[in-house]
Design a protein around this nucleic acid. Sequence first.
DNA 1: CGCATATGTAACATTGTAAGTTGCGTGATG
DNA 2: CATCACGCAACTTACAATGTTACATATGCG
Lengths: 146, 146
Amino acid sequence: MHLDGRLSRMLHLLLHMAHAEGPITSGEAAEMLNTNPVVVRRTMAGLRDAGLVRSEKGHAGGWTLIRPLDSMTMMDVYEAVGKPRIFAIGLADPAPECLVEQAVNASMTGALHAAEAMLIAHLREVTLAEIARDFEKRAASHVAKP
Amino acid sequence: MHLDGRLSRMLHLLLHMAHAEGPITSGEAAEMLNTNPVVVRRTMAGLRDAGLVRSEKGHAGGWTLIRPLDSMTMMDVYEAVGKPRIFAIGLADPAPECLVEQAVNASMTGALHAAEAMLIAHLREVTLAEIARDFEKRAASHVAKP
DNA sequence: CGCATATGTAACATTGTAAGTTGCGTGATG
DNA sequence: CATCACGCAACTTACAATGTTACATATGCG
């Protein structure tokens, strides 16, 4: 893909794991994400190293959530997947000699830093528990109305 | 490149054009940007269509700025280059059936929209004239100190 | 007019990164 | 010990910006 869906996918998966009884296998997770088990393991490896989930081999193995939803923010997951690059736009040359370009870079980085700070502030604010509550609301109205 | 440098490059070029006497050719511009004349023309085409610059063929032809620097903001240039995608991260599936993923998408788009709004606010605030003034300051201290 | 110059564009190659795929190794469990 | 599931390396695919080549078109000077 042309855009990084790892944060989105891992949030999705963590919430499913929170609702599951036992562990979830990479194959099951891959179906939920419409992808491949290897992609799941590759990305989940970061969450395991960050201490958000645990993996177990063999029969009845799979992935288990080991932290409560209200102790995790979107930022924790973003960091666990390796803090991927946020922006698709950026500087043509990060360290130019040309003073004009240096001035341009200063204005660009000013705007980008402000946006990045806003994004990170939001990621830090929202816990997975809040997203789970939003899901519950959607599920309730989905049963009631459609 | 893996990241979109069109806004950065066009800002750089517009400021050079503002300081130039006559038109600047694609070849000259390409040297300033360390790239190819065709890339310059391709990107500048958007600025021409947006009415920021004018192009002339033949002898003594090239690119000319046709709007004052204090009448252009970074946002004008961003729009002129086609409003490229801002983020490198995003949703795995923009319209999922899964209610869990819908909740995840809602939280993701909330964070991304807030960041985008902040970025755009900055782009609207900064005029090219302000960047030019920043350059003048840099040029002055560059002569004085090193 | 005729040639040099410069833009306008199409067509194709390159590149960087996430994602997808294949294959094999390792550990756990019934 | 056979099966299941993760671990991981190596390779392929997909996509968009960038880079490159080639050629057409318009301008202006001599």
